[in-house]
């Protein structure tokens, strides 16, 4: 059954690529019958994207010749184009990671504190609701203004979109901890701190993890938007550069790279989740 699905998936990919590659040629041959939806000026085409990928990643020169590793052409290209694909990817990944880490840890701590303290949550609830009502992305220009076009502003943008997501999930999780678990621990002599560590945190983990997969996408969105507004390097910057030159292929390269990065990061989180939540019945099926 699984092989069956894979066969169909491959077929769908091939059909999509073929249509994308030669669909516009078909329109040019018979403009009356085939609509011009796939104008390469706007959506590029697979062969051009591949070409652009090789150029942006310094594997080939703009002339279409391979950049040698040993003759130093590859290295020269890497230094000349500061925002080559590899460097852009590294910068974007790094800032995404730190933004994600900051957002998740602060959101978790905040959610736990407010979720377990009726007093704190009563005081802060209106402020959190108010700040949460701001579309976070609207703050990005302000953040770039305040923190400059370096990496810090990207981390802050990313943090601000992640922190609320994680906060609300943790908050709900911390509030819905089974009283039976807490009573069991208390009657066995657990202190408040021990109850937090051995009951409340583990039982909130499920809720935390439910927010991590969207959180990593949000972190990436935050970084890319930050890079759009002002950056020296990064995938977002690469998109803006390509846009300025009217190169759809370059933008497509960036988008495809982002897609792959997103899939890999989600898969990593899923693996971590399957390990840490291995006590849940649906992770025990091998």
């Amino acid at each position: 059954m699984k092989g069956h699905a894979l066969g169909w998936q491959m077929l769908i990919c091939v059909v999509l690529l073929v249509v994308w590659q030669w669909g516009y040629d078909l329109h040019e041959m018979a403009p009356d019958f085939v609509p011009d939806l796939l104008d390469p000026y706007f959506v590029s085409r697979p062969s051009d994207i591949m070409k652009q990928f090789l150029i942006l990643s310094c594997l080939k020169s703009k002339m279409g010749l391979w950049n040698g590793w040993f003759d130093g052409q590859f290295g020269a290209c890497m230094t000349k184009y500061e925002n080559n694909l590899w460097m852009a990817m590294w910068v974007t990944l790094k800032t995404t990671f730190f933004g994600f880490l900051a957002g998740v840890s602060s959101g978790f701590v905040l959610g736990l504190a407010l979720g377990r303290s009726a007093k704190l949550s009563a005081v802060f609830q209106p402020f959190i609701t108010a700040v949460n009502s701001i579309p976070r992305i609207a703050l990005a220009p302000l953040i770039v203004l305040a923190f400059g076009i370096g990496e810090t502003s990207k981390i802050v943008t990313s943090w601000i979109v992640v922190v609320f997501l994680v906060f609300f999930n943790t908050f709900e999780g911390a509030r819905s901890v089974d009283e039976g678990f807490i009573n069991t621990a208390r009657l066995l002599g657990a202190s408040e701190w021990k109850i937090t560590r051995t009951v409340i945190i583990p039982s909130t983990m499920t809720w935390l993890f439910a927010s991590l997969t969207p959180a990593i996408s949000f972190a990436l969105i935050g970084v890319i938007v930050g890079e759009f507004i002002g950056a020296e390097r990064g995938i977002g910057r690469l998109i803006i550069e390509s846009e300025a030159r009217g190169e759809a292929a370059g933008m497509m390269v960036a988008v495809i790279v982002l897609m792959i990065v997103g899939v890999v990061l989600s898969a990593l989180i899923w693996r971590l989740q399957a390990y840490l939540l291995r006590w849940q019945a649906h992770y025990q099926r091998n």
């Binding site: 009573n183 069991t184 051995t198 009951v199 583990p202 039982s203 939540l277 006590w279």
Partner: peptide, 11 residues
């Protein structure tokens, strides 16, 4: 104390 439900920690 033993509860009506088992209240075993699932994790």
């Amino acid at each position: 104390y033993v509860f009506q439900r088992d209240t075993l920690f699932p994790w």
